[in-house]
Design a protein around this nucleic acid. Structure first.
Length: 267
DNA sequence: CGGGGCTCCTGTGCGC
DNA sequence: TGCGCACAGGAGCCCC
């Protein structure tokens, strides 16, 4: 599942590959992925537009074109792969260098929009801070947690609270911080908040360093798998021995999502 | 306002 | 062995 580190990896790859190139044409094989404008206007809107910049906000990938923005959300199984045209592509952009930018998506939950300003999207407007920005300080995190009765794990996954963290990284962050996913946010004391805060930065940076995790279908912009999955401590390890104490890892459902943790190490 | 549950979607893997 | 169902989860939505 592409989360902040995976999208950031794709963003950095694409920066080196496609900036300055033009989209000559686009083939829309699955219309429902294009959320706005109409498919017809989408095609007209991207034709012969230069890719000026690649941006990321949370789990959202943004390509700045000559006038508008191409906003891409990969959701669960979306992939953006540069190179030859791929048979399974749902959307194919033909670039001015003769290569293709393929949008693939097994479960077809991804979304692409062409809009005047990405900052106007409601989902972006209500999004929480970028966890790797300097502005996301310990003090700010402390402030954000105040009065939040929500369990810490779903809270970390709430894009309105903090941007870019999904199920896998939320689970890994809490294991690193030795915090139980069920803890109400406002029950955490400063020493625990500090550990979670540090773990957020560390785990996400480690994820980027290892070019993401490919436990599902994630691939980088060149179609390669990430290596962070080798660093995973708890995700998907139900019943297997905890790397901290050897007790079996437990799996519960929280907010409908599989939540892995060690009840002994995570208090 | 918060939280639970359903929805979308399809390949995989488990149980009977 | 083969079939059928549950499961995977990001985010919008409804409802209590």
């Amino acid at each position: 599942m592409p989360e902040l580190p995976e999208i950031e990896t794709i963003k950095r790859d694409l920066e080196n590959i496609i900036i300055g190139k033009r989209i000559k044409d686009v083939e829309v094989k699955v219309a429902r992925i294009i959320k706005e404008p109409s498919v017809e206007n989408f095609i007209k809107g991207v034709q012969n537009k230069e890719i000026k910049e690649v941006l990321r906000r949370g789990k959202v990938l943004i390509l700045k074109l000559s006038a508008q923005y191409l906003v891409i959300h990969l959701r669960m199984t979306g992939q953006i792969i540069y190179g030859d045209k791929q048979e399974k592509s749902k959307i194919v952009f033909l670039l001015s260098d003769g290569k293709y930018l393929n949008f693939l998506d097994q479960r077809v939950m991804g979304e692409i929009k062409l809009i005047n300003d990405w900052r106007d999207l409601p989902f972006i407007k209500q999004m929480g801070p970028e966890p790797l920005d300097k502005g996301f300080s310990l003090e700010k995190f402390q402030e954000m947690l105040k009065g939040k009765k929500t369990k810490i794990k779903p809270l970390l996954m709430d894009q309105g609270f903090i941007a870019g963290i999904g199920n896998l990284y939320a689970v890994e962050i809490l294991f690193r911080a030795k915090a139980n996913p069920l803890r109400p946010a406002n029950s955490l004391v400063l020493s625990e908040i500090k550990k979670i805060y540090s773990a957020i930065k560390e785990v996400l940076e480690e994820g980027i360093w290892h070019r993401g995790s490919s436990v599902d279908t994630y691939r980088d912009a060149r179609g390669e798998k990430g290596k962070f999955e080798q660093r995973i401590r708890v995700y998907g390890r139900k019943g297997e021995p905890c790397f901290g104490c050897g007790d079996p890892i437990e799996k519960i459902t929280l907010g409908g999502r599989g939540t892995y943790f060690c009840p002994k190490c995570q208090k």
